[in-house]
Simulated scan of single mutants.
Amino acid sequence: MMTYKGYSANIEVDSEAEILFGRVLDINDVVTFKAQTIEEASEEFQKSIDDYLEFCQVLGQEPDRLSN
């Protein structure tokens, strides 16, 4: 599991495609990323969160966080 800016992601291995596939867990929206290495997965996860937060800001909306 990875965390960044209060968000977390789960990483899975797709052995057929030979990639790592991740999904952000803390939001209702679907945000995914893929990578070849753990280091790249971490970078892509952080980019995905930054892009998501920027997109929400452009729309003038709060991120759609899951309710606890």
Rank of each mutant, 00 (worst) to 15 (best):
M1P: 08
I38P: 02
V30Y: 07
Q61P: 00
N28V: 01
S67P: 08
G22S: 06
N28M: 02
E18G: 03
L20E: 04
D50E: 11
I11C: 12
S8F: 08
D64K: 12
E62V: 11
E54N: 15
A41V: 07
F21C: 10
L25H: 03
N10F: 04
I27H: 04
A17V: 02
K47D: 15
N28F: 10
A17P: 00
K47V: 06
L66P: 03
D50F: 03
I27P: 01
F55R: 07
I27F: 03
Q57N: 14
D51H: 09
K34V: 00
P63D: 03
M2W: 13
I19F: 08
Y52P: 05
I27L: 05
E40C: 05
L66W: 06
R23D: 01
Q36S: 10
E43T: 12
F45R: 13
D26P: 02
K47H: 12
D51M: 11
S48K: 01
N28G: 12
M2T: 09
A17F: 00
D29R: 06
V58M: 11
E12S: 12
Q61K: 14
D50Q: 07
M1I: 09
T32P: 01
A35D: 04
A17K: 14
I11T: 09
L59I: 00
S42N: 13
S42P: 00
A35T: 05
M1T: 14
M2S: 05
Y4H: 15
G22D: 10
L53M: 10
V58R: 11
Q61M: 09
V31T: 02
S67G: 10
L66M: 13
E18M: 07
F21L: 11
S15R: 09
Q46N: 08
N68D: 13
R65S: 02
G22I: 04
F21Y: 13
I49E: 02
K34P: 01
E40T: 05
L53K: 11
T37W: 06
I27T: 08
D50I: 02
I38M: 13
E18Y: 07
I11W: 10
